[in-house]
Design a protein around this nucleic acid. Structure first.
Lengths: 116, 116
DNA sequence: AGATAATACATAAAAAGGTTATATATAAAT
DNA sequence: ATTTATATATAACCTTTTTATGTATTATCT
């Protein structure tokens, strides 16, 4: 699938917050999670992810701390903040509507009555 | 809902193609359709729509012709081309996967097993 | 008759976010 | 010793959306 990132755009921040609401994680692992859950159909660019993490840090949605690693270089772990928890909670309510609406619109299963 | 457009981003072109695969339409009507289907939760900016129409025309996904109107100024109708039909067909297959993946990711209902 | 609302299209400038490309660091495996 | 896997990071560019603004036509309201 080409340009898969284009579809995820707008949801990137919430994908990250959603992962971090399950457990603390780090950049490299998060790209693996997305790859795994999407069965390699969606891939979040590393650059996109790190920029998003920076943005979320700036906005106080997440915090970070350094962690050790046996293999490879040291990891930078991210943790969701209360503000981030609230944001993902609000979003999940919206998501139901977004999903239904997008499905109807792109699927063509909607009714529309013309006046004239 | 704020920034609803941000969620639709990446899907704009396919929403338009989907509408036009049902019937020929014009800009103003398409914004009304999206407004109506989403129950005013999602609103596609007029500027976003007209730029997208321009893009789709350039890419040969749609064609256009002028139509009359009793009330208000003349309408510019858009019609989906064979290329556009093919594009929406391909997208609709992808959409099933995108929807499932996004749902799992933002909903947090996925499993991931750490190695270490 | 004049003002307003609804219908309709269009574009420039700015902002936001993603992609491409590249650089760096560490440790295990070959 | 070199390659592979793990891990982070950013600059430059590209695409798309948003904000703001302008124009045109007709019906309705006062």
């Amino acid at each position: 699938m080409t340009n898969s990132g284009e579809y995820v755009r707008g949801f990137t921040d919430f994908i990250i917050l959603s992962i971090l609401s399950k457990f603390d994680s780090y950049g490299y692992e998060m790209t693996r999670i997305i790859e795994s859950v999407s069965e390699k159909n969606i891939q979040l660019n590393e650059a996109t992810l790190y920029i998003a993490l920076k943005r979320l840090l700036k906005d106080g949605m997440i915090s970070s701390y350094t962690g050790k690693n046996k293999k490879g270089m040291g990891r930078r772990y991210y943790q969701i903040t209360p503000k981030g928890k609230k944001a993902i909670k609000v979003f999940r309510k919206d998501w139901i509507m977004i999903e239904n609406t997008l499905s109807s619109l792109v699927g063509g299963n909607f009714e529309y009555y013309r006046e004239s």
